[in-house]
């Protein structure tokens, strides 16, 4: 209350002797913030800085919470991913991996996330898919996209609209299970013609490291051709087919099953990578928010102290003017 009275006294003094006070007023804002308080206003407004501090603190709280949520979700998905890693290994042991197979119809299945705020993993997947698309297109060859996840769709719509065959979203509403992916794989197989399917996803190496990976699945006809011509798949001929059906029948079942297993593992790995990337993105976000908060606190204190000093000077000069 007393301060307020003195302040009002000071204002009258201020109007009579504007120069020292104005000089004070002009100096402090230049030091602290770009918003210059209008000349003649009382104390430098700390309200603006205080508002910023409040919002930055809120952001820090939110990003910390998001990091915790991602960490807890990650633990659950990581277990399932590790369990599913054994699923594709038998297929690779049997059929080998032929990434540089040259075929007419390529379909690139890009697995991305639906939600954002997960760092750069979606951009890396899209970059790899685009590079693959360039590699596999040309005269007599064509390549199409099947996109899982909103983020990939948004990025690929911009320049490759014509090559998109199918998009899938809302995949992560329930925890990913094999049945869901199998139904999806079934849908893809029924609607998209392909000679080779290339699944692009981010493999989960550790909480901070995700490697973009590509798996190739050949259609049964191409597989037969490759096995006859020798090479890695050449060993296929040495296997006896038990079941009395033809080799192509078994191969067809096998490639369909392989696709769904590989897609399942890829979707899980990508989900893990997404959660890990979100954890680290939110972590660095919280840290940045913390740094910003420190800087703002310093500014706030400086501003506050400057305004107190200004007040004191005015009061003292006012008092000395009254005396003498």
């Amino acid at each position: 209350m007393a301060m307020a009275v003195l302040r009002r006294e000071g204002r009258r003094v201020l109007l009579s002797s504007p120069s020292p006070a104005a000089a004070m007023a002009a100096r402090s804002p230049a030091v602290s913030q770009p918003e210059i308080a209008p000349l003649g206003a009382r104390s430098i407004s700390t309200q603006v800085v205080r508002n910023r501090m409040k919002s930055v603190k809120n952001i820090q709280k939110i990003t910390k919470a998001m990091k915790m949520v991602a960490a807890s979700k990650l633990r659950a998905v990581q277990i399932r991913t590790e369990n599913s890693r054994g699923l594709w290994q038998p297929f690779t042991a049997l059929l080998g991996d032929a990434p540089n197979v040259d075929v007419k119809k390529n379909v690139i299945v890009a697995i991305t996330s639906d939600k954002g705020l997960c760092g750069g993993i979606n951009s890396t997947s899209v970059k790899v898919s685009k590079a693959l698309h360039k590699l596999t297109s040309g005269p007599e060859k064509e390549s199409k996209y099947v996109i899982l996840g909103e983020k990939g769709k948004v990025q690929l719509i911009r320049d490759s609209k014509q090559s998109i065959e199918m998009t899938v979203s809302e995949l992560q509403k329930n925890p990913i299970n094999y049945t869901q992916i199998a139904v999806l794989a079934d849908d893809i197989l029924k609607n998209v013609k392909f000679d080779a399917l290339r699944v692009v996803f981010n493999k989960f190496e550790s909480v901070i490291s995700f490697k973009p990976t590509m798996t190739t699945i050949l259609s049964p006809e191409v597989m037969e051709k490759e096995s006859e011509s020798g090479g890695k798949v050449g060993d296929l001929d040495s296997y006896e087919i038990e079941g009395g059906e033809t080799k192509s029948e078994i191969l067809q079942n096998l490639t369909e099953f392989q696709f769904s297993c590989v897609l399942y593992n890829g979707a899980l790995e990508n989900a893990c990578s997404e959660l890990g990337a979100r954890m680290s993105a939110m972590d660095s976000s919280s840290r940045n928010a913390g740094d910003m908060l420190d800087r703002l606190t310093l500014t706030y204190n400086r501003t506050r102290q400057a305004s107190i000093t200004t007040e004191l000077i005015e009061i003292i000069s006012g008092a000395s003017a009254l005396e003498g």
Binding site: K161, Q162, M166, V168, E170, L171, Y178, T179, Q180
Partner: peptide
């Protein structure tokens, strides 16, 4: 039962345009 839930939405594309999405929800 938790291994059987299916939920996703698929949209086919033709000529750079998205057709009506189909929701699989089982």
């Amino acid at each position: 039962a938790s291994r059987e839930k299916v939920h996703f939405s698929v949209a086919k594309w033709a000529d750079g345009k998205q057709e009506k999405p189909m929701l699989w929800k089982l």
